[in-house]
Structures are given as structure tokens and as C-alpha cells.
Design a protein around this nucleic acid. Structure first.
Lengths: 198, 198
DNA sequence: GTCTATAGACCGATAGAC
DNA sequence: GTCTATCGGTCTATAGAC
């Protein structure tokens, strides 16, 4: 489908099946979506799906890995000399990943550990959260962030704000991704008080 | 159970069934929890549950109403002369409600509109969100909040941060509820930059 | 006897898998 | 399309406290 020069009977490819599945999972919930729903959405019989993927859980696993790979990349790229600069970049890049991989990340953020696949995703996500928390700690130690609040609490709230955008952000909507990244960074680092001399 | 002076065979009361059900829904997801699961959790047969509640969806509806009533109350209580004061109070009181009614609010924030019950809850929730957004707008118009960001965007991010605490906050844990409310307010209004003269 | 809460067989519908 | 398992929910009968 994506590749026009394929041989054999035309039909869906794995990527398209995955994308449509993730959209459905996000609309109805993973547990609330049956393979029959997905088949109807694709306009094929249920059995056709099993030609592309081993099963329902594999669709979930692939989407979660995609999201986790994107978020991990944010931390692997070197991004500044000071911890403050690296944290700012991490916030900005996290927003970008959330926007670019919105469906997969949305699915990831709703996972509660209900199966081995979900538990594995939660473990990977926890690693990422821990590294972000370390970044906040380092920035506090450096003296560039307020030190009157527990760093891990700050980290949870900061990235809780970032992650919350999957609840409402829609690409092509009124808010541009770069505007969004700038707004979140401004709000997080400077607060929402009236602009003072700084 | 709660009332020691009841007649008839001892057993669960509605409130306890509801509480345990909501806990299970939050652990496994609403769709991922069967009435059989709940029965096993309670140590009774499935049919016993139907003596206390009309059905699975009624458990959801009652929990969502509970959460929505708590959140609505935050906005109905008069809380300050300026919009800024009212917004600050709304943030602080929202945190308190989230903490006090954590299970019900957690369930509410995960609802996606998958049934009429869920859609009704989303409508009520949207009303609340709209009123919070108006509060932010009023504070901006008043000049006490930064005006360089769209007020509805600010509102979404601010309460996205507040709401995100259901993802990790646990009563009895290391973070006290009042400390949490103070931290969120401080972070939101003053930002996470190193403390300057203010 | 009266009341509440329970057990467990059972129903039609639908799930995931193939 | 077909399989088996499980879903939410119903039914009748009964256990147990007054």
C-alpha cells in the first residue's frame, strides 16, 4: 500500500495495520477494542489481520516500543553543557516526540501493567523517567533550578505537564508544535506570573 | 457492614463494593476488569454483586459522579477577591480533591467516552475545565498572569500538571498532601527557575 | 418468620485465535 | 467461518442474623 511497486495481491501492509490499530486502541481503549472492531475498521475479515500480525498483543508491543524508542532518543542525544541546558532541551524534545509520535506515545502513557508486554513497557518507561529525574537533580545541584522543592517531585510534575498534552493536542489543530514546545518551556521555567524584569 | 445494627445476613454494603470495584478498575482498567474478577476480589460469587448494584456500568457511573461532584465543589466555593486569588485557590483545592478522592478521580481522568455513561461524565468534566479556563482568562485580563501565552493553552497545561498526580501520588506515601498542593502552586506560579528576588 | 446477602447453574452474545 | 473461553447478566434456592 505504502509501496506502489509490490507484487501479489494488493492489501494492507504491517505498518498500516499497526497505525490503524493504534488509532482504534486510543479511541476505544486497548481492552475495549476487539479484533473484530479492527477488521471492520480495515474493511477486511478478521482472519486477514492474522496474516499481518501474530495477534492483538503484538500490535500493542510494537506501538509501545516505537514510543519508547522515540523518548529514549531524547536522552541519548547530547544537548548542552550545563544540566540546565540539557533539561530545557529534554523538555523541548520530549514535546516534539510526543507530537510527532502522538498515537504511540498516547498508548504508552495509558499502559497500566496489565500483561507482560505492558510490564516490560513500564520498566523501560521508568528508566526514562529516572534519567529525567536525574537531570532535574543535577540542575538543582548546579544551582540553576530552585532547590526548595524535592527534585523528584519537580520532575514528576514537570513531565506530568508535558505528558498531559496527549489528552488534548491534535496535529493540524490551532496550536503549532513549536509554539507548544515554547509555551511549555516558558511556563515550566518561568511560571505563569506576570512577566517581571528578568 | 458499615452499620453494625443491621438485620439479615451479614455481607458487603454498596459503598464497600463500589470502593473495591473502583480500585480494581484503576489497577486493571474498566474494560480489563470483569465482574468475575470483582467477585473473586470480594470473595463472593458473581451474582452476589448484582444484589448490591444494577450492573458493571452503574459502578462506573457512581464513581464518576463522586469525582465530578468533588471537582465541581472546588469552583462553587467563593475563594477570593481577585481572579488571581481564585485561580490559586482553585489549583490548591483541586489538588486536595484529587488526593482525597484519588481513586474516583483517577477513574474519571481515564474515561474516553466509550459509552453513554462515559460521555455524560466527559460533558460534566468539560464544563469544569471551561470554568477553570475562564478563571485563567480573567486573571490574564486582570494583569496578574502572563499574557504572552494563550489562556486556554495555559489552563490546559496548568491543570494537566495538577491532574498528572493521579499517575503517581499515593496517600500515606512520602509526599504529604499539603506539601504537594504547595509545591504545585509554587511551581505553577513561580516556575522552576532558581529563586530570585520577588 | 422476615429480612438481607449469598451460591452456583445458566443464558445469549462476543471475545481472541486460527 | 469456526472454534473455545469468557463476557455481563439472570435465575432460583438458600444461608444466616434478627
Amino acid at each position: 500500500m505504502a509501496d506502489g511497486s509490490r507484487r501479489g495481491r494488493p492489501g494492507y501492509d504491517q505498518q498500516t495495520v499497526l497505525r490503524r490499530a493504534v488509532d482504534l486502541f486510543n479511541r476505544q481503549g486497548y481492552d475495549g477494542t476487539s479484533m473484530g472492531d479492527l477488521a471492520r475498521e480495515l474493511g477486511v475479515g478478521k482472519s486477514a489481520i492474522y496474516h499481518h500480525v501474530p495477534g492483538k498483543e503484538a500490535l500493542l508491543a510494537r506501538a509501545l516500543d516505537e514510543a519508547l524508542d522515540g523518548l529514549s532518543a531524547v536522552l541519548d542525544a547530547p544537548a548542552g553543557d550545563t544540566a540546565y541546558d540539557r533539561l530545557r532541551a529534554a523538555v523541548r524534545d520530549s514535546v516534539r516526540v510526543l507530537v510527532e509520535q502522538l498515537p504511540a506515545v498516547t498508548l504508552l502513557l495509558r499502559v497500566r501493567g496489565n500483561s507482560e508486554v505492558e510490564l516490560a513497557a513500564l520498566r523501560r518507561r521508568r528508566e526514562i523517567d529516572d534519567r529525567l529525574a536525574e537531570l532535574v537533580s543535577a540542575a538543582v545541584a548546579e544551582g540553576s533550578l530552585r532547590g526548595d522543592l524535592p527534585p523528584d517531585l519537580v520532575s514528576r510534575l514537570l513531565f506530568g505537564m508535558v505528558n498531559s498534552l496527549v489528552e488534548w493536542y491534535r496535529p493540524g489543530g490551532p496550536v503549532d508544535a513549536e509554539v507548544l514546545a515554547a509555551a511549555i518551556t516558558a511556563l515550566a521555567f518561568d511560571g505563569l506570573g506576570a512577566i517581571r524584569s528578568q
